[in-house]
Amino acid sequence: MISVGNIAVVLLGAAALGGMMNTVPDYNSSFQPFSIFADQDGIGKGRQFTAELTGLKSAKVISYAQFGQEVSRDSSATFLIAELSITGQTESRQLEAIWLGATGRQYSQSARLEDAPRNLSSARFEPGLTDRTIAVFEMPEDEIVGGRLVLAPRASMVMDGAVYFAEAEAAPANHEMLRLEP
C-alpha cells in the first residue's frame, strides 16, 4: 500500500513538473517592457523619458533636404508621421517607435526615411533637455484610424517601460506632398 502511495506521489510530481515546463512563458513573452499609458493630454512618462504626441499627419510624398540635395520619397501606401516632443530623464537614451495598426499588425519606422531631419532613428535624448522629433511609418491607410503609437527605449526593453499613446480616433490631416524641415 505504501509503495502504491509513493508511486502515486512520484507520478503526481512528474505530471506537475511536466505541466509547469509546458506552460512556462518563452523568453520573448517573459521579457516584454512594462506597459505605460499616456494620459488624455497625450503625455506619457516612461522610466527614462517623457514624451508628448503633438500631432499626426499622413502624406503620399515626403521631401526634405540632405547635404544640400533635395530628397523625395513616395509610397504606394501612406506615410504616417507622428510628431513628438521628448524629454530625457535619467540617462542619455535612444528610443524606437512602432505603430500598432488597427488590424493588429505592427509597423516599424520606415528605413527609407532614416536620414530625414529630426527623425527619431538618429535622435538621442539627453536628461533635462526637450527635443522635437518625428517617427515616420509606411502602411496601408486603413491601419491608421484605430491604431496607436508605442514608444520604448531602444535595445533595452527588458524590465523597462513602453509608452502606449491613445488610439487614433480620426484620420490625420492628409498631405499630397509633405516637406520636412530641420
Partner: peptide, 12 residues
C-alpha cells in the same frame, strides 16, 4: 549631475 542624471558622449 549631483542628482544622478547621466550624459553619455555623442557619437553622431
Amino acid at each position: 549631475s549631483a542628482s544622478g542624471e547621466r550624459w553619455l558622449p555623442i557619437e553622431g
